[in-house]
């Protein structure tokens, strides 16, 4: 009977210890937060960009140069790279370099409208600013 009492005392002691440890354990946080995309921008990106620029893309060049998965997730690209990518997105869309001409010839429905371009540019520039660009 004594044994049972001692064992249950030990078990509850251990349980309390582990609970204290759990409570004191710092919450692991990434130093970056996931980036939110406004709905109108998301529609434009899904239409003309993300099919090549995602981690699972078969377009090696597209996914190496830019992956929206890595750009938007908290544990994706490091901050300097994210900033650079946002500035590049704004430039490429502004200069009509993206989506590429060859791609648009085959997929004319994927062309961005002027409103969509403006929305992407404004969003990309604003995210770049948040990351430190002037």
């Amino acid at each position: 009977m004594k044994k049972v009492f001692i064992i249950s005392l030990l078990v509850s002691g251990l349980a309390m210890l582990s609970f204290t440890n759990y409570k004191n354990k710092p919450i692991e946080q990434s130093n970056q937060a996931a980036i939110q995309v406004p709905a109108n921008v998301q529609v434009a990106l899904d239409k003309s960009c993300t099919m090549c620029h995602n981690d699972a893309s078969k377009n090696l060049k597209g996914k190496t140069k830019l992956s929206f998965d890595k750009l938007l997730s908290a544990d994706g690209y490091p901050s300097p790279k994210k900033m650079a990518k946002f500035l590049e997105i704004a430039d490429e869309v502004k200069n009509n370099s993206m989506p590429p001409k060859g791609f648009l010839e085959k997929n004319p429905d994927k062309a961005l409208t002027e409103t969509e371009k403006s929305a992407i540019i404004a969003w990309a520039q604003s995210e770049a600013k948040k990351l430190g660009a002037k």
Binding site: P80, M83, L87, E88
Partner: peptide, 13 residues
Amino acid sequence: SVEKIKVLDECAD
């Protein structure tokens, strides 16, 4: 510094 980071990223790509 921002311009340098952008240029470096493009160079690496």
